[in-house]
């Protein structure tokens, strides 16, 4: 567990975001420190995905402040934000049907030093090797998720934003993804994870940020979550 005094890698302050006239985020504030795995949890439509998309600049109409390694992200475009060292894996996985598994895997350019080589990626995700020539979308849901995570490790970004990687997957695959995330954390990656699966979130995270109606309503450590599941289940409505 990291010391609370460690300087944050990502600082989100009073983040507000809009889809056309509709305000989706009402003022989200939280930090992520280096090496942490933090989850954003909350009900459907609470604003978790919008928070990730706002950080990446995909939601363009946003106000407040998002600082990454001291650089303000508001006002920057998505590709500029990525080049600062943030990698994003969307909820729908973003596997390209017109590209083979290998093309999908090798699509992200090397943005920073320390990115995994193609061989290292295939070693870390061995299932993808046998399917390298297949269309990306011919993979099973679990394999597609592995591919989506694997390819963002190529560009050398050390801060990963993952949107519900466990969604719709069989328990055995979810377990495997959890193991991968723990390995990445052990390798020094910092991860911000949107998650609705509370058990999965508990199994991988250091801290949890609870979002409701576009605002942060609670933050708790993984130990606190384990001790007070009822409180969190109330937030999630489960």
């Amino acid at each position: 567990m990291l010391d609370d005094t460690t300087a944050p890698l990502l600082e989100v302050r009073d983040l507000r975001a809009w889809y056309a006239e509709s305000q989706a985020l009402q003022g989200v504030t939280f930090d992520v420190r280096p090496g942490e795995l933090v989850t954003l949890i909350g009900r459907n439509g609470a604003g978790k995905t919008t928070t990730l998309r706002s950080i990446m600049g995909i939601v363009k109409n946003r106000k407040g402040s998002i600082r990454f390694e001291g650089n303000e992200l508001i006002g920057r475009r998505t590709f500029q934000i990525a080049r600062l060292g943030l990698a994003y894996c969307p909820e729908e996985r973003g596997i390209f049907s017109s590209l083979s598994v290998r093309e999908n895997l090798t699509l992200p350019p090397h943005l920073k030093s320390g990115g995994m080589s193609d061989e290292e990626l295939l070693k870390a995700f061995p299932n993808l090797r046998a399917r390298a020539g297949s269309r990306g979308t011919s993979l099973s849901g679990g394999e597609q998720q592995m591919l989506a995570i694997a390819r963002i490790l190529r560009n050398g970004c050390r801060f990963l934003l993952l949107d519900e990687p466990s969604e719709g997957l069989a328990p055995v695959i979810v377990k495997e993804i959890g193991a991968q995330l723990r390995r990445l954390k052990a390798q020094g990656y910092t991860i911000l994870l949107v998650e609705q699966n509370l058990n999965f979130a508990r199994s991988v995270a250091d801290r949890h940020v609870v979002i409701e109606h576009g605002a942060v309503v609670d933050q708790l450590s993984n130990e606190d979550l384990a001790a007070d599941m009822d409180r969190v289940k109330t937030y999630l409505g489960v």
Partner: peptide, 12 residues
């Protein structure tokens, strides 16, 4: 062509 947002999030 399939998903400009995802490609842009790769830094392109």
């Amino acid at each position: 062509n399939e998903s400009p947002e995802v490609v842009e999030s790769f830094g392109i």
